[in-house]
Simulated assay, not measured.
Amino acid sequence: MALPRGRRGRSRVAGAGRFLYEARTPAPNDEPRDMNLVDTIKNAFVPVHKEGYPFIGAFAVVTLLLGLFSTNLFWIGVILTGWCAYFFRDPVRVTPTDDRLVISPADGVVSTVGPAVPPRELGLGTAELTRISVFMNVFSCHVNRAPVRGKITRIEYRPGKFLNAELDKASQENERNGLVIDSPNGTVAAVQVAGLVARRIVCWTQAGENIAVGERFGLIRFGSRVDVFLPKDATPRVAVGQTAVAGETVIAEFGGHAATPLVRID
Protein backbone atom coordinates (compact mmCIF):
# COMPACT_ATOMS: atom_id res chain seq x y z
CA MET A 1 0.00 0.00 0.00
CA ALA A 2 1.42 3.35 -1.00
CA LEU A 3 2.31 5.74 1.77
CA PRO A 4 1.04 9.33 1.54
CA ARG A 5 3.58 12.00 0.85
CA GLY A 6 4.65 14.10 3.78
CA ARG A 7 4.14 11.27 6.28
CA ARG A 8 6.28 8.65 7.89
CA GLY A 9 4.62 5.29 7.61
CA ARG A 10 5.65 1.77 8.40
CA SER A 11 5.49 -1.25 6.17
CA ARG A 12 6.15 -4.90 6.95
CA VAL A 13 8.99 -6.53 5.06
CA ALA A 14 7.91 -9.91 3.75
CA GLY A 15 9.28 -12.69 5.92
CA ALA A 16 11.11 -10.37 8.28
CA GLY A 17 8.38 -9.99 10.85
CA ARG A 18 9.60 -6.53 11.80
CA PHE A 19 8.54 -3.01 10.92
CA LEU A 20 10.78 -0.69 8.94
CA TYR A 21 10.18 3.01 8.53
CA GLU A 22 10.10 4.78 5.18
CA ALA A 23 10.66 8.50 4.92
CA ARG A 24 8.73 10.55 2.37
CA THR A 25 9.43 14.00 0.96
CA PRO A 26 7.23 16.55 2.74
CA ALA A 27 4.26 17.75 0.76
CA PRO A 28 4.18 21.47 -0.20
CA ASN A 29 1.37 22.21 2.26
CA ASP A 30 3.09 20.55 5.22
CA GLU A 31 3.93 23.04 7.93
CA PRO A 32 7.55 22.92 9.18
CA ARG A 33 7.95 21.95 12.82
CA ASP A 34 9.56 24.63 14.92
CA MET A 35 12.75 23.50 16.66
CA ASN A 36 13.26 24.81 20.17
CA LEU A 37 16.32 24.71 22.40
CA VAL A 38 15.18 21.52 24.14
CA ASP A 39 14.86 19.71 20.79
CA THR A 40 18.31 20.89 19.77
CA ILE A 41 19.86 19.61 22.98
CA LYS A 42 18.03 16.28 22.77
CA ASN A 43 19.20 15.74 19.19
CA ALA A 44 22.80 16.33 20.25
CA PHE A 45 22.76 13.31 22.58
CA VAL A 46 22.91 9.69 21.43
CA PRO A 47 20.63 7.22 23.26
CA VAL A 48 22.27 4.79 25.68
CA HIS A 49 21.29 1.13 25.56
CA LYS A 50 19.67 -0.20 28.72
CA GLU A 51 22.40 -2.86 29.00
CA GLY A 52 24.72 -0.05 30.02
CA TYR A 53 22.64 1.41 32.85
CA PRO A 54 24.07 -0.83 35.64
CA PHE A 55 27.64 -0.11 34.54
CA ILE A 56 27.12 3.63 34.21
CA GLY A 57 25.45 3.67 37.63
CA ALA A 58 28.34 1.72 39.17
CA PHE A 59 30.89 4.10 37.63
CA ALA A 60 28.93 7.09 38.95
CA VAL A 61 28.71 5.69 42.50
CA VAL A 62 32.45 4.93 42.56
CA THR A 63 33.13 8.44 41.26
CA LEU A 64 31.15 10.00 44.10
CA LEU A 65 32.98 7.87 46.65
CA LEU A 66 36.34 8.82 45.19
CA GLY A 67 35.30 12.46 45.41
CA LEU A 68 35.17 12.13 49.21
CA PHE A 69 38.92 11.48 49.25
CA SER A 70 40.41 13.29 46.27
CA THR A 71 39.32 15.93 43.77
CA ASN A 72 41.70 14.52 41.18
CA LEU A 73 40.29 11.01 41.55
CA PHE A 74 36.77 12.46 41.30
CA TRP A 75 37.48 14.01 37.91
CA ILE A 76 39.13 10.83 36.69
CA GLY A 77 35.95 9.02 37.70
CA VAL A 78 33.83 11.57 35.83
CA ILE A 79 35.86 10.95 32.67
CA LEU A 80 35.55 7.17 33.04
CA THR A 81 31.80 7.45 33.68
CA GLY A 82 31.45 9.53 30.53
CA TRP A 83 33.42 6.92 28.59
CA CYS A 84 31.16 4.16 29.92
CA ALA A 85 28.05 6.03 28.74
CA TYR A 86 29.74 6.59 25.37
CA PHE A 87 30.60 2.91 25.09
CA PHE A 88 26.98 1.84 25.53
CA ARG A 89 25.59 4.37 23.05
CA ASP A 90 22.92 3.07 20.71
CA PRO A 91 22.44 5.52 17.83
CA VAL A 92 19.69 5.36 15.24
CA ARG A 93 20.91 3.97 11.92
CA VAL A 94 19.51 4.27 8.37
CA THR A 95 19.66 0.73 6.92
CA PRO A 96 19.40 -0.17 3.21
CA THR A 97 16.69 -2.83 2.78
CA ASP A 98 17.74 -4.24 -0.60
CA ASP A 99 17.99 -8.04 -0.22
CA ARG A 100 21.03 -8.06 -2.51
CA LEU A 101 23.06 -6.13 0.04
CA VAL A 102 24.84 -7.39 3.16
CA ILE A 103 25.16 -4.74 5.86
CA SER A 104 27.89 -4.42 8.48
CA PRO A 105 26.87 -6.00 11.81
CA ALA A 106 29.26 -3.84 13.82
CA ASP A 107 30.99 -0.49 14.08
CA GLY A 108 34.74 -0.71 13.64
CA VAL A 109 37.51 -1.50 11.20
CA VAL A 110 37.32 -4.28 8.62
CA SER A 111 40.11 -6.63 9.72
CA THR A 112 39.61 -9.62 7.41
CA VAL A 113 38.14 -10.21 3.94
CA GLY A 114 38.65 -13.64 2.43
CA PRO A 115 37.90 -17.36 2.53
CA ALA A 116 37.67 -19.18 5.87
CA VAL A 117 36.06 -22.28 7.36
CA PRO A 118 33.14 -21.35 9.66
CA PRO A 119 33.08 -22.55 13.29
CA ARG A 120 32.07 -26.20 13.35
CA GLU A 121 29.22 -25.70 15.84
CA LEU A 122 27.28 -23.69 13.25
CA GLY A 123 26.78 -26.79 11.12
CA LEU A 124 27.81 -25.08 7.89
CA GLY A 125 30.27 -27.77 6.81
CA THR A 126 34.02 -27.76 6.35
CA ALA A 127 34.21 -25.92 3.03
CA GLU A 128 35.55 -22.37 3.02
CA LEU A 129 33.04 -19.53 2.88
CA THR A 130 33.62 -15.82 2.36
CA ARG A 131 34.38 -14.25 5.72
CA ILE A 132 34.28 -10.52 6.49
CA SER A 133 35.37 -9.48 9.98
CA VAL A 134 34.80 -6.14 11.71
CA PHE A 135 36.97 -5.36 14.74
CA MET A 136 35.55 -3.15 17.51
CA ASN A 137 37.86 -1.32 19.89
CA VAL A 138 36.82 0.10 23.27
CA PHE A 139 35.64 3.34 21.65
CA SER A 140 33.38 1.68 19.05
CA CYS A 141 29.63 1.38 19.40
CA HIS A 142 29.18 -2.25 20.48
CA VAL A 143 25.53 -2.85 19.60
CA ASN A 144 25.45 -5.56 16.91
CA ARG A 145 22.96 -5.63 14.04
CA ALA A 146 21.77 -8.30 11.61
CA PRO A 147 23.68 -8.25 8.29
CA VAL A 148 20.70 -9.66 6.34
CA ARG A 149 17.04 -10.39 6.90
CA GLY A 150 15.64 -13.87 7.31
CA LYS A 151 14.85 -16.59 9.82
CA ILE A 152 17.30 -17.44 12.58
CA THR A 153 17.68 -21.20 12.29
CA ARG A 154 20.41 -21.69 14.84
CA ILE A 155 22.17 -19.93 17.74
CA GLU A 156 25.27 -21.54 19.21
CA TYR A 157 27.41 -20.29 22.08
CA ARG A 158 30.90 -21.65 22.72
CA PRO A 159 33.20 -20.78 25.64
CA GLY A 160 36.83 -20.20 24.80
CA LYS A 161 39.90 -18.04 25.18
CA PHE A 162 40.19 -14.26 25.22
CA LEU A 163 42.91 -13.68 22.66
CA ASN A 164 43.29 -10.38 20.84
CA ALA A 165 40.21 -10.27 18.57
CA GLU A 166 42.33 -8.92 15.71
CA LEU A 167 44.19 -12.24 15.45
CA ASP A 168 42.89 -14.60 12.78
CA LYS A 169 42.86 -17.58 15.14
CA ALA A 170 40.48 -15.73 17.47
CA SER A 171 37.60 -16.86 15.25
CA GLN A 172 38.22 -20.49 16.25
CA GLU A 173 39.73 -20.22 19.74
CA ASN A 174 37.93 -17.33 21.46
CA GLU A 175 34.61 -17.33 23.28
CA ARG A 176 31.92 -16.76 20.67
CA ASN A 177 28.23 -16.76 19.87
CA GLY A 178 26.97 -17.51 16.37
CA LEU A 179 23.68 -16.83 14.59
CA VAL A 180 22.77 -18.76 11.44
CA ILE A 181 20.27 -16.86 9.28
CA ASP A 182 18.28 -18.34 6.40
CA SER A 183 18.26 -15.31 4.09
CA PRO A 184 16.69 -14.81 0.65
CA ASN A 185 20.16 -15.41 -0.87
CA GLY A 186 21.21 -18.43 1.15
CA THR A 187 22.62 -19.16 4.59
CA VAL A 188 24.49 -16.33 6.31
CA ALA A 189 26.17 -16.54 9.71
CA ALA A 190 27.09 -13.71 12.09
CA VAL A 191 29.50 -14.68 14.87
CA GLN A 192 30.15 -12.49 17.90
CA VAL A 193 33.75 -13.08 19.00
CA ALA A 194 34.99 -12.00 22.42
CA GLY A 195 38.31 -10.14 22.57
CA LEU A 196 41.22 -9.48 24.87
CA VAL A 197 39.15 -7.19 27.12
CA ALA A 198 35.65 -8.49 26.40
CA ARG A 199 34.21 -10.81 29.03
CA ARG A 200 30.54 -10.82 28.16
CA ILE A 201 28.62 -11.61 24.98
CA VAL A 202 24.95 -10.66 25.00
CA CYS A 203 22.41 -11.98 22.46
CA TRP A 204 18.77 -10.90 22.55
CA THR A 205 17.31 -13.13 19.82
CA GLN A 206 16.25 -16.77 19.76
CA ALA A 207 16.31 -19.53 17.18
CA GLY A 208 13.12 -19.65 15.14
CA GLU A 209 12.59 -15.89 15.14
CA ASN A 210 12.58 -13.71 12.06
CA ILE A 211 15.03 -10.84 12.01
CA ALA A 212 15.16 -7.73 9.83
CA VAL A 213 18.34 -6.43 8.25
CA GLY A 214 19.93 -3.88 10.57
CA GLU A 215 17.91 -5.07 13.56
CA ARG A 216 19.77 -5.14 16.87
CA PHE A 217 20.54 -8.68 18.00
CA GLY A 218 23.26 -8.37 20.62
CA LEU A 219 26.18 -6.59 22.23
CA ILE A 220 29.72 -7.45 23.35
CA ARG A 221 31.55 -5.85 26.29
CA PHE A 222 34.31 -4.38 25.93
CA GLY A 223 36.25 -4.70 22.64
CA SER A 224 35.75 -7.57 20.22
CA ARG A 225 34.80 -8.45 16.63
CA VAL A 226 31.97 -9.84 14.53
CA ASP A 227 32.57 -12.32 11.69
CA VAL A 228 30.10 -12.63 8.82
CA PHE A 229 30.23 -15.85 6.80
CA LEU A 230 28.69 -15.62 3.33
CA PRO A 231 28.07 -17.98 0.40
CA LYS A 232 30.82 -17.94 -2.23
CA ASP A 233 28.61 -16.03 -4.71
CA ALA A 234 28.60 -12.95 -2.45
CA THR A 235 30.97 -10.21 -3.64
CA PRO A 236 32.77 -8.25 -0.88
CA ARG A 237 32.34 -4.46 -1.13
CA VAL A 238 34.83 -3.46 1.57
CA ALA A 239 38.58 -3.76 2.06
CA VAL A 240 40.81 -4.44 5.05
CA GLY A 241 41.37 -1.23 6.98
CA GLN A 242 38.08 0.37 5.98
CA THR A 243 35.84 1.77 8.69
CA ALA A 244 32.37 0.22 8.84
CA VAL A 245 29.18 1.49 10.45
CA ALA A 246 26.76 -1.08 11.86
CA GLY A 247 23.42 -1.11 10.10
CA GLU A 248 24.58 1.21 7.31
CA THR A 249 27.80 0.17 5.56
CA VAL A 250 27.38 -2.28 2.67
CA ILE A 251 30.04 -4.95 3.15
CA ALA A 252 29.00 -7.39 0.39
CA GLU A 253 26.52 -7.86 -2.43
CA PHE A 254 24.69 -10.81 -3.93
CA GLY A 255 24.31 -10.93 -7.69
CA GLY A 256 26.91 -8.23 -8.25
CA HIS A 257 28.98 -8.63 -11.41
CA ALA A 258 31.70 -6.12 -10.61
CA ALA A 259 34.85 -7.28 -8.87
CA THR A 260 35.76 -6.36 -5.31
CA PRO A 261 36.65 -2.65 -5.47
CA LEU A 262 40.26 -1.55 -5.35
CA VAL A 263 41.16 0.98 -2.66
CA ARG A 264 43.80 3.60 -2.01
CA ILE A 265 45.07 4.47 1.46
CA ASP A 266 46.35 8.05 1.79
Rank of each mutant, 00 (worst) to 15 (best):
P4L: 09
N144C: 02
V245T: 14
I220Q: 09
G195F: 09
V46E: 06
V78C: 08
L3V: 13
T260H: 11
V62Q: 13
V245D: 08
A194T: 00
W83P: 08
F222C: 00
I41F: 07
V94L: 10
L167S: 09
E248L: 04
L80D: 08
V102P: 05
T187M: 04
Q242E: 15
I211D: 00
G247Q: 06
T235C: 09
R12L: 15
T126C: 01
A27V: 03
V48S: 10
F69K: 12
Q206D: 09
G114R: 10
G150K: 03
R176I: 01
V48Q: 11
T260F: 11
V138E: 01
Y53R: 13
I181N: 02
A106P: 11
L65Y: 00
Y157T: 15
P4S: 08
A207T: 04
P159I: 05
A259S: 09
A27W: 03
T97M: 06
R200E: 12
R7F: 11
R12K: 14
K151A: 11
R176G: 01
I211S: 00
V240L: 06
E51Q: 10
A259Q: 10
V197P: 06
W204D: 11
G208A: 10
P115T: 12
N185K: 07
D168N: 05
D30H: 02
R8D: 09
S171R: 14
V228Q: 06
P119M: 14
Q206N: 09
R24T: 15
V78D: 07
D99S: 05
I201G: 03
R7D: 10
W204Y: 12
L262Q: 00
D90G: 05
P32M: 06
